[in-house]
Every structure is written in structure tokens, then in C-alpha cells.
Amino acid sequence: MPNVLTLSALVIRDRHGRLLLVRKRGTSMFMQPGGKLEPGETFAAAAVRELEEELGIRVGESELEALGHWYGPAANEARTFIDAALFACSPAEDPVPAAEIEEFLWLDLAEAGSRTDLAPLLTEHVIPLLAAVPRFRPGRED
């Protein structure tokens, strides 16, 4: 039986439509900011906590837009699946890598198909969702 991780992930775009991605220390795949829920924590609370811990960005739960759930393979752990709640937000603060974040980047979605270092949640769910739903437009000012 595979291991299942329950987590929250965030969709954050800049005014150019680029998507904020992070790479955690000791891994090779880029993914959305976010992480595992702590005992008794809601998906939204985990998203808020992880965003502040990983990138120093503070948002309230009321600033999150729920985009749904996704179940699929984990990016960096063999025989592991994720049950992920996905949220969008448009924070005013700039990201600063902290905690386990080795680096971050702003991904132009037009370049996503040429990359081999993107997590399955991103390639199988997030990018198709952003491409298919017109309301997901850039919301941040840089």
C-alpha cells in the first residue's frame, strides 16, 4: 500500500502571469509553495502557515481561493501519493526563501512543456487548470 501525504499547495502568479515555484533542499523537482498538514490543521490553515514558513509571505485564510483537490504521485518520494488541496492567492509581499526552500523561480507557463524538473501536481493538474480557466489571470503587481 502506498504512503499518502495530505498537503496544501498554493498558486501564486505575478503580473506577467508567471507562476511561483519552489525547490526544497535535497530535491530536484520544482513545485508550488505549500506542505503537509499538522495534526488537527485545516487545509487553509496549512497553506497560510507554509507560505509564511517557506517564503516569509503573510496572508489570511480569507485571502485564499479554493481551487479544488488533486490526488496523484508525489514529486520527490517513491511509492508515495499526495492528497492536495489547491489554493490561489495574490500576496503583496515578495518571496524570500526560508526553512527548507533551496530556491524559487517564476515560471512562464509557455516554458513548462520543455522542463523535466516540475512536480506531477503542477504538470498534470495546475498548468492545465490555469490554461483552461480564463479567470486565473495575473493578480500581483511587481
Rank of each mutant, 00 (worst) to 15 (best):
Y71C: 10
R18F: 06
D117P: 00
L51T: 01
L130W: 03
P73D: 08
A85Q: 12
D94R: 14
E50A: 03
G72Q: 01
N3Q: 09
I101C: 15
H125G: 02
A98E: 13
R18M: 08
L86Q: 04
G68Q: 13
E102Y: 13
R23A: 06
A46H: 01
I82G: 02
L20H: 00
V96F: 14
W106D: 02
H16D: 10
L7C: 00
A9R: 02
P73L: 05
R25E: 10
A92G: 12
D142W: 07
V4C: 09
A131S: 14
E102P: 10
S114Q: 14
A85L: 07
A92N: 10
S114H: 13
T116F: 08
A85Y: 05
W70M: 02
R140K: 14
E63W: 08
L118M: 08
D142G: 05
A46I: 01
G72W: 00
E54W: 08
S90I: 02
F43H: 11
M29W: 04
G139M: 14
A74V: 04
E93L: 14
G17H: 03
L19D: 02
V96H: 15
A78V: 12
S90Y: 13
D94T: 10
L107H: 09
H69C: 03
F136L: 04
R135K: 14
L19R: 06
E38V: 01
S90N: 13
F136E: 00
E93W: 09
A112T: 11
H125T: 11
E61G: 05
L67T: 09
D94F: 07
G68H: 11
F43G: 05
V11Y: 00
P33E: 09
L118I: 08
F136V: 00
S114V: 11
T27P: 03
A99Q: 04
L130A: 05
L19A: 05
E100D: 15
S62D: 08
E100R: 13
P91M: 03
R137G: 05
L118P: 04
